[in-house]
Amino acid sequence: MTERVPVLRIGDVLLVSIQVDLEDQTVLNLQEDLAEQIVSRAARGVVIDITAVEIVDSFVGRMLATIASISRLLDAETVVVGMRPAVAITLVELGLSLGGVRTALDLEKGLALLRRAAADTDRR
């Protein structure tokens, strides 16, 4: 039985805090859970907190981009927060710049970013 990463809800934002080592199956489960919950809870934003993640590979990098794409299709904005310097360097060296993913330094700034983005879309 592989571990499942919990998906928490704060208002209309889903918070995923990754605290375990990411195995491939865990990542696939997370993608499924997240897609379901965005729909069932009508979420407008997703925050993925990777403060505790120390090691990444290209699979995890792609996972972040995939989740962002899935969420966007379901009309939710994704923000990746708390990336460590070493992780950022690794991703750059791997050639993954996570084009479509928004990033923020920490959870607080990530939530603020989502609020601003929501305000922008409402105005339009």
């Binding site: 923000v79 990746v80 927060v81 990336m83 310097p85 992780v87 950022a88 360097i89 991703l91 750059v92 060296e93 710049s97 996570l98 928004r102 990033t103 923020a104 330094l105 700034k109 990530g110």
Partner: peptide, 12 residues
Amino acid sequence: LKTIVAARLMGA
């Protein structure tokens, strides 16, 4: 460019 992309990944 690498440095800038890495900073962006962190949200700066």
